[in-house]
Each structure stands twice: as C-alpha cells, then as structure tokens.
Design a protein around this nucleic acid. Structure first.
Length: 484
RNA sequence: GGCGACGUAGCCAAGUGGUCAAGGCAGGGGUCUGCAAAACCCCCAUCGUCGGUUCGAUUCCGACCGUCGCCUCCA
C-alpha cells in the first residue's frame, strides 16, 4: 500500500466519491458486465474494457489481490423486436448459436489482448449457468418477488421497494416499453422477465420448472456474480447505458432473493462517441476494433482512452487519436532511449535528483489515480517526468546505470503495470536480428558517405528507409533507427 | 414528458473559492544538427450566456442557451 491519500472511488449508488474499503482486507472481488458475443467488438467495447482493466490494474498496483469476473453473454440478450442477438447472428452467418458465440468470444479476446486488457480471472458463460439462474428465479418466486405466467417468469418490481435506487427512477414514472404481446402477462408494466417461454421455433432452450425456455438477460449477471464472488462483493462495473434497466434489475434480483446487499461500489464508465454522435450501426459510424487497428496501434487507442476520465463521454475524432499517437511516440522514445543508454552506462549510485524526480512523479501519479482513477492527471505526471528525463538524457550523458535503471523501473511500473500502456509495440525496433544487421550495414555506409560529405546520397538512403517505415536519427553517439 | 451528465485555448482534455487554470497535439520563436529527425527552452485560454451568494468564482446557487445519455433490454 502507499503513503498517499486513500483510494477514492465514485460510487453510482451514493452519487459521490467514497473511500474504497474492501470487504475482505487486501482482497477485491469485482464484476464487470461482459460482451454479448454476436458480432465483432467495436471501439465502445474498447473504451469500456480499457477503463475497467485500468481499475483492476491499479488495484493490483496498490497491492490488492483482485478476483475479476467478467461474463460472456451467449443467450438471452434480446433485440428490440424480441429476437435473441445470438440467434440472429447465427442465422446471419449460417452457424449454430454456439459456433457463433465461440467465434466472437475468441475474436473478442484477441482484440482485448491487443489492447493490453488483462483477461478476467473467471469468464463465465451464461449458457453454462442456467441451473444457477433457475435456482435463483425459484428463490424469487418462493419469496414472493416473482411470478410465473404462461411459462414465463417476471420479477414483481412492486415487491421490492428499493427498485430504482441506483438509477434514481421511481416505478410510477416508468413508461412501459413492453411489446404488446407480453404486456398482458405482467402484473405491472415495469416488471421484467427472469425467464422466457421458448416458442417452438426458438432453438436455444432449456427445461425448467415452468416449461422449456431461456433466461432473461438481467438474471445472468446476478447469478454468475453471486456464484463466483459471493454476496455482497466489492465492485460492480459496467457502461452507464446499462445503469437502467440492466444494473437496476441485477440489484433487485440479488437483493430480493437473499436480503443481502449485492455490490458495495457501482462504477459506470461514460460512452464513446464518434465525431459527436453515439456510435450506432444505423448512423453508419460503427467502427470495430479490428478496423481501428488498421489505422492505429492498439496502444494508441488505449492512450487515447486513458487521456480522458473514465466517467465522462469520450468523443473520438481522427485528429484527436492522431494527437494521442504523437504523444505515445514521445513517451516511447524516452523509454527506449533510457533502455538503450543502460548499455555501457557508467557505474554509480542513484542520482539524488533523479531519485527526487521519480518520487515526486510517483506521488503525483498515485494521488491522481487515488482520486477516482484520474488517468489524465496521472499521465500528465508521466509527461512531466518525461520532459525532465529527456533533458537529462540530452544535457549530460553521464546518468549512472543505477539512475537509468530506476527510471526504467518507474516507467514500467506506472505506464506499464498500472496503465497497461507498454506493449511489444515499444520493443518493436528491437526485433528481427537479421533486419537489424542489415540496417546497421546501411547506417554504416551512410556514415561513410556523410564523412565524405556526400549528403545527397546519405539523405537518399534516409529517405528511402523512411518510405519503408524506418526513421534514422543522427545524434552525438551515432545514428539510431526507430520504426514508425 | 421524467431521470441524469456535460459545455475550459485551433483540436483533445484535467482541475481549483483567492499568486486568473495540468498535460498531449497543432502553431510561432530559439538551441542542437551538414540538412533533417528526436530532444530541450520560450510564447499561445480570463474557463457557454445572464443573474445571485461572497471581500473575491472558472470553481457555490438559479435561470437560460447548447450538446449528450437513459427511460425504447447498445459497452
């Protein structure tokens, strides 16, 4: 743990920042609503899971042992028309539902891996937990919080007075958006489905005490969170757009069934916008992560996301992401130089001024992060440190190995471990031995040309390499190359 | 209509009741370089509008304008 101010988190449940105190000392149990795996993950998923990955990373940075559960929704998440997203996707791609779910689950993790989003410790699938859901639903029926109607089961919102406490809504104010067909089955328009009767043509179906059917979307998260994290647990996260009804319903189900509180801290992240508009297929501004990666390095996307506060909306424009790209390059350049300098650096103790700089940076970083994960302010501390480090690297070339090692270590810990911003992208110019040897040959040749003042030829080599994506940088210690 | 969020420099984005405000990108001027690149130094904002509270507000309150989210099972 640290010696700075305590970790404060904004808790949607109380609409204020609170000192974070885990239920079990030193441990954190955390749940985040995972994706519905019916198509490729998009930039919005990227923001959400980067945001919560950063929460997990920082908690671990602080020394907590974190148990992170993020589900995979592979059934029950319906479209407006009542069609199951998974079934629709399966029909679209002529696959069995589970083939589809498997395909997009793998692609989801592939994209998240590239964004340096750590995989959850447990990734339960909804279809693997139908028994737990049925058990929970039965409990709700037995306790009078749910009722069966024509093979479907609904939660009775009027039986749970606290319904609405997360989203600030009152049952009386809720409009009924329910489709005509099922409106008659409900006792109250705001009642929501726990279990749905499967029509004959519905492929995804399970036997239950109420006949063949499938679970509602909300009950999945309650059942899986309780199973793996216990009740109550520490942190529940998700996109703000799911605050109502999804999270509100999760609370109602879990707390009505057991009488125990569900999650202590509710964290909601803001949505990603594209040029001022919500990203939506119908607006034609839908960008999958795979598409975005063709344009930008995943770490650029990650930095861009962390450059704004997780709770706010984030408006993506090409200009803004390009700016983040340049910023990342600046950070990487400094780290690369520090690491290179370690070869052949003079022995010696850690420079007291460097030590002070690193301590100050660490303090500012932690103070910012402890204030409800203020990543923009934390990153500002890193950039300030980078300016100082660069100045030292240019001015006197005599930084001791101990100093360089300490700088490297802090970058690794803050930018790498806590923010997840360092990946193989950083080391890309250290790859491919043969390529590096050939480049060294070219650089040596160019050096001779420069000595002979054959600048036109020397610049020609530099320009040609630039076209291939290799940037040459001449410095007092010779020429270095980096990939762009 | 109900609930909620936001409006800070050319772009993105933190933040604070009282030396009129981080950081990144872009831009201008320097240093360094054969020229570049990288890097460093300097410059570049009165905080949506109008009121109010206060000795003093960008930061607190109200109204208005604007943008956005949820309510209609998108992360």
């Amino acid at each position: 743990m640290t010696d700075t101010n305590p970790l404060m988190l904004y808790n949607s449940l109380v609409r204020d920042k609170q000192v974070f105190e885990p239920i079990r000392p030193g441990r954190v149990h955390m749940y985040v609503c995972g994706p519905t795996v019916y198509s490729d993950a998009h930039l919005g998923h990227g923001k959400t899971y980067i945001n919560f990955d950063t929460v997990v990373r920082y908690l671990r940075y602080l020394g907590y042992r974190v148990l992170y559960v993020q589900n995979i929704t592979d059934v029950g998440h319906l479209l407006d028309g009542g069609e199951d997203r998974i079934l629709k996707g399966a029909a679209r791609e002529q696959l069995q539902p589970m083939e589809l779910a498997e395909r997009y689950t793998r692609r989801y993790y592939r994209d998240m891996d590239r964004l340096n989003v750590l995989r959850p410790d447990i990734a339960p699938r909804a279809t693997g937990h139908v028994i737990e859901m049925i058990t929970l639903i039965q409990k709700l029926i037995d306790s009078g919080h749910a009722y069966e109607a024509n093979g479907s089961v609904y939660f009775a919102v009027e039986s749970f007075p606290e319904y609405g406490k997360l989203s600030g809504r009152r049952v009386e104010d809720l409009q009924s958006g329910t489709r005509e067909a099922v409106r008659d089955e409900k006792r109250h328009p705001a009642d929501f489905a726990l279990w749905k009767r499967a029509e004959p043509e519905h492929v995804m179906r399970w036997p239950s005490p109420w006949g063949e059917g499938f679970p509602g979307w909300h009950i999945e998260c309650s059942a899986m969170a309780i199973k793996y994290l216990g009740q109550p647990f520490d942190i529940h996260g998700g996109g703000v757009e799911n605050k109502f009804p999804h999270h509100e319903c999760e609370i109602a189900q879990a707390e009505a069934a057991t009488g125990e509180p569900f999650a202590r801290y509710w964290m909601h992240n803001g949505m990603l916008m594209i040029r001022g508009e919500e990203m939506h297929k119908s607006l034609g501004n839908f960008v999958t992560l795979e598409q975005a990666f063709e344009r930008w390095d995943p770490m650029v996307i990650r930095l861009f996301v962390l450059l704004s506060h997780y709770r706010g909306p984030l408006d993506l424009t090409e200009e803004a992401v390009d700016a983040a790209e340049r910023g990342l390059e600046r950070l990487y350049n400094a780290i690369r130089t520090v690491r290179r300098r370690r070869t052949g650096a003079p022995e010696g103790a850690l420079d007291p001024e460097i030590s002070a700089l690193l301590e100050e940076t660490r303090g500012r970083f932690e103070a910012a992060m402890n204030d409800d994960l203020n990543t923009p302010a934390a990153i500002a501390a890193l950039f300030d440190m980078t300016r100082e480090v660069n100045a030292r690297l240019t001015d006197d070339a005599a930084l001791s190995d101990a100093s360089l090692e300490a700088i490297d270590a802090l970058y690794t810990r803050l930018a790498g471990d806590a923010l997840g911003l360092l990946s193989e992208s950083l080391d890309q110019d250290l790859t491919a031995g043969l390529t590096a040897d050939l480049l060294d040959l070219l650089i040596a040749t160019r050096a001779r040309l420069r000595q002979a003042k054959q600048y036109a030829l020397a610049d020609g080599i530099r320009d040609s390499l630039a076209d291939l994506g290799v940037i040459l940088q001449d410095g007092p210690e010779g020429t270095r190359w980096v990939l762009r």
